[in-house]
Design a protein around this nucleic acid. Structure first.
Length: 374
DNA sequence: GCGGGTTTTCCTGATT
DNA sequence: AAATCAGGAAAACCCG
């Protein structure tokens, strides 16, 4: 940690220990009697918070500087004596911070500050997970609407504006490169001074969840998703519904779906191309986990070393998997059945008694820190 | 075309 | 009560 940053913390803390204007923060509003949620989400103007970007960013993606700013804010607010801080513990990035449990937090920062930090972190995590869910649903709606509009017979609407043009026109930056799909998950931009080698914002956008996960990093998965042979789905419009129609009628993979689960209105497109080689489910899951900057709160490591992980947004992950396999009817229930088959092959190990928690087994690879370091 | 591997789909029943 | 887990069965699809 840079010594300037240390002194930054200590100075701020000391200034609060011996304030010239008691009970007023630098921003001029009382620091007492505000709940943690309010502080974390709505406070924006504290001048001590030199960078401030931690407030809008998912804690998973915080830089070391963000973590420091966040600790600084809470040290300052709780009038904690910063000289008691083990400063080595502050030199971590967001993903490491998020892996600390409540007990570790208390042991590291003391029961008072530790509890406060833990609460704050949980609030911020939940806030961002909720954002992701909302955006995910928004994006789905967008895609449906957009496909619907673009495939309407032109005589009906006389070449009216597409959803894209509407969205883009209302976007002051006019950045047409920004594919709406999943990009909204990046509601806020990362800090320009990002110090940990994360991708730039635009790069993140371009390789947004869809793109990046469709190009798994494992050797087996190379080029797995740049399928030029992607066959477009066609739709017909009728006053009652709009129905996807395959150019060539092919049977759906797996047991024939039973009619009656929404299939009357929306006949799913069926796979009409080979699933790319190497796009195994466990690799897809692994790649979400090893790219925390793109993970967006979908999954998290429970025990990084042992390969224990948890689904945070099980249905969202299933939808992504379905999107990758061009199967919009994928659900967590089906995905989890495939996951359970991995137990026998020891690609996964069972984790008893914990919902949505799995563990990589000895026949999986590419997730261990040592492997990734290579 | 065949067979093995890997899902996908559906299902029943149990557990949390 | 709803979500999740467990695992059997059957089928689809890929690949060698």
């Amino acid at each position: 940690m840079a010594s300037s940053e240390l002194s930054h913390i200590l100075n701020n803390a000391n200034a609060n220990l011996y304030p010239s204007e008691p009970s007023l923060s630098a921003a001029g509003f009382p620091t007492m009697h505000r709940n943690a949620m309010f502080n974390d989400i709505h406070y924006c103007n504290n001048i001590h918070n030199a960078d401030g970007s931690w407030q809008q960013e998912n804690p998973q993606f915080w830089s070391r500087r963000n973590v420091l700013d966040w600790i600084d804010f809470h040290v300052e607010e709780s009038k904690f004596d910063a000289t008691l801080l083990n400063l080595d513990c502050c030199n971590i990035d967001g993903s490491m911070l998020c892996s600390l449990g409540r007990d570790t937090m208390m042991a590291t920062f003391g029961s008072l500050l530790g509890e406060k930090l833990h609460q704050s972190l949980e609030n911020l995590k939940h806030k961002h997970v909720d954002d992701i869910t909302q955006n995910y649903m928004l994006n789905e709606t967008y895609e449906l609407l957009n496909t619907f509009l673009s495939d309407l017979p032109q005589s009906h609407f006389n070449e009216g504006p597409t959803l894209d043009s509407v969205v883009i026109q209302s976007n002051p930056t006019g950045n047409k490169e920004c594919d709406f799909s999943y990009c909204n998950e990046y509601k806020t931009q990362p800090t320009p001074e990002s110090d940990n080698g994360y991708e730039s914002y635009s790069e993140s956008l371009q390789s947004s969840i869809t793109g990046s996960f469709l190009n798994p990093s494992s050797p087996e998965s190379v080029g797995s998703d740049s399928d030029p042979e992607y066959t477009e789905t066609h739709y017909t419009y009728s006053p009652k519904s709009f129905i996807k129609q395959e150019p060539v009628e092919k049977k759906r993979r797996g047991r024939p779906p039973k009619l009656g689960r929404g299939s009357e209105l929306f006949v799913e497109n069926k796979k009409n191309k080979h699933a790319p080689r190497g796009t195994h489910l466990w690799e897809f899951i692994r790649d979400i986990l090893i790219h925390p900057e793109k993970n967006q709160g979908l999954m998290k490591w429970e025990d990084r070393r042992d390969g224990v992980f948890k689904f945070l947004k099980s249905e969202a992950v299933a939808q992504l998997w379905g999107q990758k396999k061009k199967n919009s009817s994928m659900t967590y229930e089906k995905l989890s059945r495939a996951m359970r088959y991995y137990y026998k092959r020891e690609i996964l190990e069972r984790v008893d008694g914990r919902r949505l928690v799995y563990k990589f087994g000895k026949n999986s690879s590419g997730w261990k820190l040592e492997e990734l370091a290579l």
